[in-house]
């Protein structure tokens, strides 16, 4: 699939057809996530792939932003102790969340190329998700990504163009 077509075609999907996802497909899209850049090549991201519907139901209970019945939920996490060890405060506070977001974006595009829909979720209770997924103390969930066979094709919201891009200096 053409990369620009994937970037422009991807949507945030919140309605899924009830179908499971092949583990090999999930492994491929997670592999794509790990090819994202990371500050100082830290690679302190950790991914928890949840496919058991009972566990997904529990995640939904504590994640108001997790909508629909996805075939899988990927918790994009960061080992913040490892991030701090690698990059000090900058590594922990700025680079780790940015790296997680870049990895998540790769995941979204790879999923789209596989014919899957995704939605990135930040509205979840971190301490509850950490307990449900049995995360070690230093591993923090940064984003949840629902993944599934899409049962909708949302329209693309208009993209802002005015005042977004500036050449050489802001306002240029």
């Amino acid at each position: 699939m053409d990369l620009y077509a994937a970037i422009r075609g991807r949507r945030s999907v919140r309605r899924f057809a009830s179908a499971s996802i092949e583990p090999a497909v999930l492994e491929r899209i997670i592999d794509a996530a790990t090819w994202a850049p990371s500050g100082g090549n830290a690679q302190t991201w950790r991914f928890v792939i949840v496919t058991e519907q009972a566990r997904i139901a529990k995640l939904k209970t504590v994640s108001p932003g997790l909508i629909g019945e996805p075939g899988a939920v990927v918790a994009v996490c960061q080992d913040l102790a490892a991030a701090r060890a690698k990059g000090s405060a900058l590594g922990e506070v700025l680079l780790a969340p940015c790296d997680a977001a870049m990895a998540a974006q790769n995941l979204l595009l790879a999923a789209y190329a596989e014919g899957l829909g995704t939605c990135t979720v930040a509205s979840f209770t971190h301490r509850a998700v950490a307990r449900l997924l049995k995360l070690p103390e230093t591993v923090e969930p940064i984003l949840l990504v629902s993944v599934g066979v899409p049962d909708e094709t949302p329209k693309a919201p208009a993209r802002k163009t005015e005042g977004i891009v500036h050449w050489e200096v802001y306002g240029g």
Partner: peptide, 19 residues
Amino acid sequence: LDALVDTFVDYLDPGEPCC
């Protein structure tokens, strides 16, 4: 609120095997 969430999760996931 943190303590309340913890209590809720105690009931939601009481340590028994999930699935």
